[in-house]
Design a protein around this nucleic acid. Structure first.
Length: 609
RNA sequence: GCCGGCGUAGCUCAGUGGUAGAGCAACGGUUUCGUAAACCGUAGGCCGAGGGUUCGAAUCCCCCCGCCGGCUCCA
C-alpha cells in the first residue's frame, strides 16, 4: 500500500505484461496473481453491472481491490455472488493477453470510461503507447503484471466493500472499493484470517472493556475516553515515568489551563490554519465575532509562548524547556474516531523548548535520546520515523531561508542519531518541519506517537524574543515535542503491544493473594498489607469460590503474580508464587516476594512477560 | 465528514408484527476446597433516542445518536 497506485509503472514492467511463474520471483508472482484477480473482479462486476465505470485495481499488501462507480451500493450478498462468479471465470482458464496500443486507440477503446480517460491523460504525457490487458471478454487499461491465465490465480476471498474517493481526493466522486484477500496457498490465506482473529483479541478496545481499563459513554460524548480506576493507574504510571525522565533532562513543568482567547489563536496562526479541528468559539452571542471569545486549546504552543513572554529572557537560559501534561480538545470528524487511538480530548506530554538557531541540532538530538529511552522502557522497538518537509503549496510562508536551516538541522540530528527515516514533502506543520514517529496497532493501522517539530513562525508572531550575546533582541526557535504523543493513544498502543499483559510496574493489580480456605484469610491479608506498605498494588480474593476459580479469574484479569496461600504457606509465613505465564515459582517467603516485586517495580522491568 | 455494515441485560448472543430470552459476569446463601470454572437462588431491559405505519412494533418506514470497516484528514 506504500506505493502510489497512480504512479504509473507503465514502463516498469520488465518482463512484459504477462509472465510465467518461473520468469519472476515469488513476491512478484504473488503481486501478479493479486492484480490478475482484480481484473477478474472487474470482469464479473461488469457482467453484473454493464454500466459500471471502473477505476483502478492494484495489488495490495494482503490481496487486491478494485474501485467502481456503480448504479447502486453493493450488498454483502452481491459480494458472495461476485466471488462465486470470479471462481467460475478463473476455472475457465482464460489467458491474459497484454499488449501496447497507440494512445488514440486507447482513448477510443475506453470512450465511455471517464476514469480511464483521466488515466490516459496522465500516462500519455510521457508515452505514445499504452498497455492494455485482455482476458475473456474484459479489457482493461493496464500497465501489466499478470500471470498467464486465470487458473493460475491463487486462493482468495472477497472481504469487504468500502467507500473510496477517486484518486484519494475527498472533493472527487466516491467509488465503491471491493477488497479481496489473496495468497499463494490456501494455508497462507487461512493463516491471514487467523492473524486477523488474533489481532482482534489484542484490540485495545476489546481488552479495555474486558480488563475494565476505560469506557466510552454516548451521554458524555463520542471521542471522550473515560478511564476507569485501573486504566487511570496505568496512565498515572506513564505520566510518572515521563515526568521523571524530563525532570532529569532539565524540563520545567508549567500549567496553563484549558482555554484561551481567540485573539491568541489568531496571532499564532491557528485560527487561520487549524480551525477545522478546533471546537467552535465559546461566546455569549453566537453571531458575535468578538475576539474576547474563548476557545478550547487544540495545542499548548501559543500559550506557552505567551507564558515565555512574561519576562525578558537571555540566551544564557537556553535551552529553556517548558513541560506540561494537559488535556487538549480537537474536534475530530466522527468517522475518524477510533477507541483510544483517535479521540477528541487528548492529553499530551507537550513541551516547548526555546533555543537559538545554532542549538537546533544538539537539542533535537537530546529529544531523540529521550524518545529512545522511553521506547526502550516500554520495550517497543517497532517504530519508524518520518521527516515531514514543506511542499509546494502556499501554506508554508514566511522566511524560506529559515525553513531551509531548520530542515538541515533536523535532518542532521536524525542522521547523527543513526535513525532511518523517510522524507515526506508537503507534510510539515504550518509553522515548521517535523520528525514524527509512527507505530502500527494490532490491526496494522499506523499511528503517530512522538513528534518533534521546529517552529519558525509562531515565536515571531507572538513576539517572543531573547537577548543574544551581543545584546541584540532576537527571535528564538521553538521546538514543539511530544514523546508519548498523547497518553490516550499511547495507552491504546501499549495495551495492544502487551496484549493486556502489562509488566509489573504498569499493571493495575500487581499481585493478588488467593487464600485457599477462609482460615488462610488472615495471613493473606497480612501479606497484602505488607506488600502494599512497600508501595505495591496488591489485593486479596476473599470470595467464597474455590481456589481454582480464583486462579482462573486472576489469570483472566492478567495479574502478574498470584500468591496462593494454604496451610503450608501460613505455617511457613510464605506464599506460593504463580506467575502470569502459568509458571509456578513455588513457596517463597514474604521477604523474598517483597524483594522480587519491589525490584521489578523499581527497575520498571519488562517482566513478567 | 463520506460510503457500507451494525446497535436486544455489564459481556457474548437468540428472538422477523402478537405478554422480552440464554450463557457468563453481578448480588445473596450453602460449601472451605492446593494451581484456569463448586452448588442453589435472586436481581438485572423505555430492545440506542425521537417520530411514523398498525388494533398491536425489538421486528416495517423516516430521522437523529453511537459503534465497526474503509476513504479522506491527524497526537
Amino acid at each position: 500500500m506504500a506505493e502510489d497506485p497512480f504512479d504509473g509503472a507503465i514502463d516498469a514492467v520488465g518482463t512484459g505484461g504477462v509472465a510465467a511463474q518461473d520468469e519472476v520471483d515469488a513476491d512478484e508472482w504473488l503481486r501478479r496473481m493479486r492484480h490478475s484477480a482484480a481484473h477478474v473482479l472487474a470482469q464479473v462486476v461488469l457482467q453484473m453491472f454493464p454500466d459500471a465505470k471502473f477505476a483502478i485495481g492494484p495489488p495490495i499488501e494482503t490481496g487486491f481491490y478494485y474501485d467502481f462507480d456503480l448504479p447502486r451500493p453493493l450488498t454483502p450478498e452481491d459480494l458472495s455472488t461476485i466471488q462465486k462468479r470470479m471462481r467460475k471465470e478463473m476455472g475457465r482458464n482464460h489467458a491474459f493477453d497484454w499488449r501496447e496500443i497507440p494512445v488514440a486507440d486507447a482513448r477510443e477503446m475506453f470512450a465511455d470510461q471517464p476514469f480511464k480517460q483521466e488515466l490516459i491523460d496522465q500516462f500519455s504525457a510521457d508515452a505514445e503507447q499504452l498497455g492494455i490487458c485482455t482476458h475473456a471478454e474484459f479489457t482493461d487499461l493496464c500497465q501489466g503484471g499478470h500471470v498467464e491465465s486465470t487458473r493460475q490465480i491463487g486462493p482468495f476471498r472477497l472481504t469487504n466493500v468500502a467507500g473510496a474517493y477517486w484518486r484519494g481526493d475527498e472533493t472527487r466522486p466516491q467509488l465503491q472499493r471491493v477488497y479481496g484477500a489473496l495468497f499463494a496457498t490456501r494455508e497462507e490465506l487461512d493463516a491471514h484470517f487467523q492473524r486477523i482473529e488474533e489481532a482482534q483479541r489484542r484490540d485495545h478496545r476489546k481488552l479495555g472493556r474486558d480488563l475494565g481499563l476505560f469506557a466510552f459513554s454516548e451521554l458524555v460524548g463520542a471521542g471522550v475516553p473515560l478511564l476507569l480506576p485501573d486504566g487511570a493507574i496505568i496512565r498515572q504510571e506513564m505520566e510518572r515515568l515521563i515526568r521523571e525522565l524530563q525532570e532529569a533532562r532539565g524540563y520545567q513543568e508549567v500549567w496553563t489551563g484549558h482555554v484561551a482567547r481567540g485573539e491568541l489563536f489568531r496571532r499564532s496562526g491557528h485560527l487561520e490554519n487549524y480551525a477545522d479541528v478546533m471546537y467552535p468559539a465559546m461566546r455569549e452571542d453566537p453571531d458575535d465575532e468578538d475576539p474576547e471569545a474563548y476557545y478550547l486549546k487544540p495545542m499548548n504552543c501559543p500559550v506557552h509562548m505567551t507564558l515565555y513572554n512574561h519576562t525578558l529572557h537571555s540566551y544564557r537560559e537556553f535551552p529553556l524547556r517548558y513541560a506540561e501534561y494537559t488535556t487538549l480538545y480537537r474536534y475530530e470528524k466522527s468517522g475518524q474516531l477510533s477507541g483510544l487511538t483517535r479521540v477528541r480530548s487528548l492529553t499530551q506530554d507537550d513541551c516547548h523548548i526555546f533555543i537559538t538557531p545554532e542549538q537546533i541540532s544538539d537539542e533535537v538530538s537530546r529529544v531523540l535520546e529521550l524518545v529512545q529511552t522511553l521506547f526502550e522502557t516500554y520495550g517497543m522497538p517497532n517504530f519508524r520515523y518520518e521527516l515531514s518537509l514543506p511542499g509546494e503549496s502556499g501554506k508554508y510562508v514566511d522566511d524560506p531561508g529559515a525553513w531551509q536551516t531548520a530542515v538541515t538541522a533536523l535532518r542532521s540530528a536524525l542522521d547523527s542519531a543513526g535513525i532511518d527515516y523517510v522524507e515526506q514533502e508537503g507534510e510539515a506543520a504550518f509553522y515548521g518541519p517535523k520528525a514524527d514517529l509512527f507505530v502500527s496497532d494490532a490491526m496494522g493501522r499506523e499511528w503517530q506517537l512522538s513528534t518533534i517539530q521546529l517552529d519558525l513562525i509562531q515565536p515571531a508572531r507572538l513576539g517572543c524574543v531573547y537577548v543574544a550575546e551581543d545584546g541584540e533582541r532576537r527571535t528564538p526557535v521553538v521546538i514543539h515535542r511530544a514523546i508519548h504523543g498523547s497518553f490516550e493513544r499511547f495507552l491504546g498502543i501499549l495495551i495492544e503491544h502487551y496484549a493486556g499483559n502489562f509488566p509489573l510496574w504498569l499493571a493495575p493489580v500487581q499481585a493478588r493473594c488467593i487464600p485457599i480456605a477462609d482460615r488462610h484469610l488472615d495471613w493473606a491479608r497480612e501479606v497484602a498489607a505488607d506488600l502494599r506498605a512497600a508501595g505495591l498494588r496488591v489485593d486479596v480474593d476473599d470470595g467464597n469460590e474455590r481456589m481454582q476459580a480464583k486462579i482462573r479469574n486472576g489469570q483472566k484479569r492478567k495479574i502478574p503474580y498470584l500468591l496462593v496461600i494454604g496451610d503450608r504457606e501460613v505455617d511457613a509465613r510464605a506464599a506460593a508464587v504463580r506467575v502470569r505465564s502459568g509458571d509456578d515459582l513455588g513457596a517463597k517467603s514474604l521477604d523474598e516476594i517483597r524483594a522480587l516485586l519491589s525490584d521489578l517495580r523499581r527497575r520498571r522491568a519488562a517482566e513478567p512477560a
